[in-house]
Design a protein around this nucleic acid. Sequence first.
DNA 1: TCCCAGGTGTTAC
DNA 2: GTAACACATGGG
Length: 292
Amino acid sequence: MQGSFYTKKIYNMIKLLFSGKYFNIKDTLECGQVFRFLPYKNGYLIKCVDKCAYVYNDGDTAVIECEDRDKAFFYNYFDLENDYEKIVQDAINSGEEIIRKSAEIGKGIRLLNQDLFEVSLSFIISQNNNIPRIKSIIEKLCFSLGEKRTFLGQEYYSFPTAKVMAEKDETFYKSLGLGYRAEYVRAFAELVANGFDLKSLYSMQTEMLKSILISLKGIGPKVADCISLFGYKKTDSFPVDTWIEKVYREDLSGKLTDRKKIASELVERFKDRAGYYQQYLFYYKRSIEDKN
DNA sequence: TCCCAGGTGTTAC
DNA sequence: GTAACACATGGG
C-alpha cells in the first residue's frame, strides 16, 4: 500500500487511514498469527512489545490510531508496504480451489511483522495448546512481568524483556499454567538475555534459520515454521498443525501423513507464497469449524 | 470421562 | 530413519 491516504494528528495521537480492501482488522488479528489483542469499541486494541494501537474498519477504510511516535512502527507491523492485491490474485489463480476460496474469504488478512522475542515465545507456548489458553497464558505473563502502561485511558502491560524473564525459575512459569513448556520458556529467555541475537538471523536463508531454531529446546519443525513466517517473514514457510493437516487431507486430498513432508511438499509447490496461503487455509478451516 | 489443542522430546525398533 | 508414547493444562 502506498502510504495512508489521510492522517489526522490530535495532540500526541495520530490516526492513519488506509483502503480496507486488503486490510481487514478482524481477519488480520483473529487468523491465529497473533495473540495479544482484545475487542475495544468498534475494533480492537492490539499490543506488541510495549506499544498499543486502536484498530478498526470503518466502511471501506481501515484505521490505525496510535501515538504519533509509533506510526512508523505500526505501519511496518501491519506490513503496509506489501502489495496484497497481487498476493490474493496469485492465490485465486493458484489452480487449487480451496486456496482460491480461502483467499477470497481471507483477502483482508495481512501477515504482521511481529517482534522476534515475543513471537518466538508465543509460539513456543502454543505447542499442543489451544488459542484461548495461549492468549490467557501470554496475558498472565505480561501482567506479572511486564510494565504497566496506559493507552486511551486503558491499562495494559508490556511484553516482558528477556532479562526480566531470565530471572524467574521454572516453578514461576509453571504457575502461569505453562505445564511442561515452562522449562522451554525459561531457557529461551535465558538464551536471549545472555546475548543470543535474534536479529542476526534475519539475513539467513529459510532452511538455515529453521535448523538453528530447531536446535533450541522446545522448538520443533512446526514452531520453527511459525517463527520463521511470523517473525522473520520467510514466506517460503508452511507451518503444519492439526488444522492444516485436516485441510491437507480433506481439501487438498493429500496422502502424506508426516507433517514435515507435508510442509516441504507445499513449499516446493507454492514457493514464497506458501506462507500466505497457509494462513488463508488455517483461518478458513478454523472459522467453518466454529460454526458447527 | 474422554478428546482435543497452531507439537516436541525421548525411547525403542 | 520413523513409530509410539509421555508430557501439563483447561475447554468442550
